[in-house]
Design a protein around this nucleic acid. Structure first.
Length: 203
DNA sequence: GAATAGATTGTCT
DNA sequence: GACAATCTATTCT
């Protein structure tokens, strides 16, 4: 019996809201991947909202629509996975409505299921709480890569599960990470993290 | 502890 | 050809 039930899958309606609200709502939910090597899952403790054409830090800034970011333009509840810095994958959850290219970057998870497999993928010498810390690291540990771009989280092997909500007093809002080139938009408080979790990334 | 550099490749101009 | 929603190791202080 798996440590995490698959029955609590979040419905499509959960995703159909603006990226900032979705980023907050995703805290505490469980990202689960049932791969051929085994199942892994983690509790989301850090997210960032990317808010479409007006957001200088977003891939869809200025209405850009390319093969890479095409899934951002599609229906909510799908995974937008892209490759960056020559070696890392990052996974986003598409928000809002078709034609509104908003998404939420998943930045950190607390490992919940499949610890052995996660350790195997990450390599030796890493504390368990840090195995899925950082957007690139969590994709490696969860076995997420370009094959998952466009995956439907409501139906496929990659899923999001409902879990106990994170109370407001445990949520901290900060500026986003790694977007110094975004001018004024770099200062907006569009990063959400669970206070006190050992698994959040950054300083 | 802070700052810096190097890795390494898809994507877009 | 420049650069990127990163991570790690190394070199300072």
């Amino acid at each position: 019996m798996p440590a995490v039930s698959d029955s609590g899958r979040l419905p499509r309606s959960f995703y159909g809201r603006d990226a900032v609200r979705l980023a907050r709502a995703l805290l505490g939910t469980i990202l689960r991947h049932e791969s051929p090597e085994g199942a892994t899952a983690g509790r989301i403790v850090e997210t960032e909202a990317y808010c479409g054409p007006q957001d200088r830090a977003a891939h869809s800034y200025g209405g850009r629509r390319t093969p890479r970011n095409e899934v951002m333009w599609g229906p909510a509840g799908h995974a937008y996975v892209y490759f960056i810095y020559g070696m890392h994958w990052c996974v986003n959850v598409v928000a809002a409505a078709p034609g509104c290219p908003e998404a939420v970057l998943i930045r950190a998870l607390e490992p919940v299921e499949g610890l052995e497999l996660i350790r195997l993928r990450r390599g030796p010498g890493i504390r368990d709480e840090w195995l899925l810390r950082g957007p690139g690291n969590l994709c490696r540990g969860m076995g997420i890569d370009g094959r998952h771009n466009g995956a439907d989280l409501v139906r496929g092997a990659l899923t999001l599960l409902r879990a106990r909500a994170v109370p407001a007093h445990r949520v901290k809002r900060t500026p986003r990470v790694g977007i110094a080139g975004a001018g004024e938009h770099a200062r907006l408080l569009w990063r959400f993290r669970v206070e006190g979790s050992a698994s959040v990334s950054g300083k």
